[in-house]
Design a protein around this nucleic acid. Structure first.
Length: 356
DNA sequence: AAGGGTAGCAACCGCCTGTCA
DNA sequence: ATGACAGGCGGTTGCTACCCT
C-alpha cells in the first residue's frame, strides 16, 4: 500500500514497511525511546528517514493505537470538532483516544465528507450547500406557483428551505453516478418509463405510474437532474394539494443558526414525524404499518447531537417513535451510516400518492 | 471468470512552526 | 535578530481489495 517501493537518492528505503522493519523500530523504541527521529533509523539499523520512522510509529505501531471501525459516537465527535476546528486533525485526534490524525483525516475524506454531502451540508463550512440551496429555492418557488397546487404553499411563507429537497438535490448533483446505487438499494424507488409502472421496491406495495401527472425517471440515466427534480416535486405537490396539508418546511435561518450552535436537527432529514404537519402521518393506517416495519433509522448522529428546542419541527412528538424504534431493530451500523441517500429517496417515494 | 471501476488507507511530500545556538 | 534544524501538520498519491458488469 501507499507509495511505490523504492529508494531515494540517499539510499533510504521508501514505500510500505515490512514486518522486519516494524519489529526493528518497535524494539528500538521500547529499549531507547524514539529520541531524535533523525538519528533513530541509523541507531535502529533501518534504512529509512527519521520522518518515515516517526510516521510509522505514530500512525501504526504505537501500542495505544485503536484499530477498527469508528463508532457513531466518534463520528459525532469528529463532525462537531471539525465544525469548530476545521482540518485540525491532530487537535481532533487529541479528543479521540487511540485515533491518529492521519486516520481521522482519512476517515473524514472517505466517509464523513461524503455523508455530509449526501445530507446537503457543505463539509467545509458545515452549512447547507449554497448551490443546492439555489436549486432548492428555484424548485420550491416553482412548486409554490404550480398550477397543480394553487393554494397549498403560497402566502406569507417566504423563502423556505426544505431539507428533503436539498438532500435529494444533493443526491443528484453531487454524485450523479451514485444514484444508480440508490435505485438498486432496498427502499429506493425505481421508475420505469417504458412500462409506466412506478415502484417502491421492497418497502411498500407498488403502484401505478398513471397516478402521477408525469411518470418519473428517478434514476438520472438520461434526463437532466433539474428535470427529474421538477418531476419529483410535481409528484409531491399532487400529494400535498390533495391532503390540504402544509408541509413542515424548514426555515433556512433556523437551520443555519441551530447548526452553527451545534444544534443540528438531524432527525429531520428525510422525515416529518409530527402528526399535524407530517406528510407521512397523513397516510392510511395500513401504510403507517408499512413505514413502521420498513423505515431504517435515519438518525445515526442523533445520539449525541442535541435536539433543537426551537426547531420548527417538534422532534419530540410521540409520533417520532416509529422512526426511532427502528434504530435498534437489528439494522447494522453500516446500513445506518450509509443509508442516508436511499432514505432520502424513500421519503419522496412515500410522498407520492399511491405509495402511502 | 475476467476486466474495469472505485473505495479505503498507508505512506509520502512539502510547508509551517517552534526551538536553540 | 536570525538562520538552521527538528518535528508537526495537512494535503496528496498510489497500491490493494473489493464490487460491479
Amino acid at each position: 500500500m501507499g507509495k511505490s517501493p523504492g529508494s531515494d537518492k540517499n539510499g533510504l528505503k521508501k514505500g510500505p514497511w515490512t514486518a522486519e522493519e516494524d519489529q526493528k523500530l518497535i524494539d528500538y523504541i521500547q529499549k531507547h525511546g524514539h529520541g531524535r527521529w533523525r538519528t533513530l533509523p541509523k541507531n535502529a539499523g533501518l534504512k529509512r528517514c527519521g520522518k518515515s520512522c516517526r510516521l510509522r510509529w505514530t500512525n501504526y505501531l504505537r501500542p495505544d493505537i485503536k484499530r477498527g471501525k469508528f463508532s457513531l459516537e466518534e463520528d459525532d465527535v469528529i463532525i462537531q470538532l471539525h465544525s469548530v476546528l476545521g482540518n485540525k486533525w491532530s487537535t481532533i485526534a487529541a479528543r479521540l483516544p487511540g485515533r491518529t490524525d492521519n486516520e481521522i483525516k482519512n476517515y473524514w475524506n472517505t466517509h464523513i465528507k461524503k455523508k455530509l454531502l449526501r445530507m446537503g451540508i457543505d463539509p467545509v463550512t458545515h452549512t447547507p450547500r449554497l448551490d443546492l440551496l439555489e436549486l432548492s429555492s428555484l424548485l420550491s418557488s416553482s412548486l409554490y406557483n404550480s398550477a397543480l397546487n394553487p393554494t397549498g404553499f403560497v402566502g406569507n411563507i417566504g423563502p423556505m428551505f426544505n431539507p428533503n429537497l436539498l438532500s435529494l438535490a444533493t443526491a443528484f448533483m453531487s454524485a450523479p453516478n451514485k444514484n444508480m446505487e440508490n435505485c438498486n438499494n432496498p427502499g429506493s424507488i425505481q421508475a420505469q418509463n417504458q412500462t409506466g409502472n412506478f415502484q417502491c421496491q421492497n418497502q411498500v406495495e407498488s403502484f401505478q405510474g398513471n397516478q402521477l401527472q408525469n411518470p418519473v425517471q428517478i434514476c438520472p440515466t438520461s434526463s437532466s437532474s433539474s428535470t427529474v427534480m421538477t418531476q419529483i416535486l410535481q409528484a409531491n405537490s399532487n400529494h400535498f394539494s390533495a391532503n390540504q396539508t402544509l408541509p413542515n418546511l424548514w426555515q433556512l435561518d433556523d437551520y443555519v443558526n441551530n447548526y452553527s450552535k451545534g444544534f443540528l436537527p438531524m432527525q429531520n432529514y428525510g422525515y416529518y414525524p409530527d402528526s399535524n404537519q407530517s406528510i407521512i402521518s397523513s397516510s392510511t393506517d395500513q401504510n403507517q404499518a408499512c413505514l413502521t416495519e420498513n423505515i431504517p433509522c435515519l438518525n445515526p448522529l442523533g445520539s449525541i447531537l442535541p435536539t433543537p428546542s426551537s426547531s420548527s419541527t417538534p422532534l419530540n412528538s410521540s409520533s417520532n417513535t416509529y422512526v426511532n424504534n427502528n434504530c435498534t431493530s437489528g439494522i447494522t451500523e453500516d446500513i445506518e451510516r450509509d443509508s442516508y441517500c436511499s432514505n432520502m429517496l424513500m421519503f419522496d417515494a412515500r410522498n407520492v400518492k399511491g405509495c402511502m
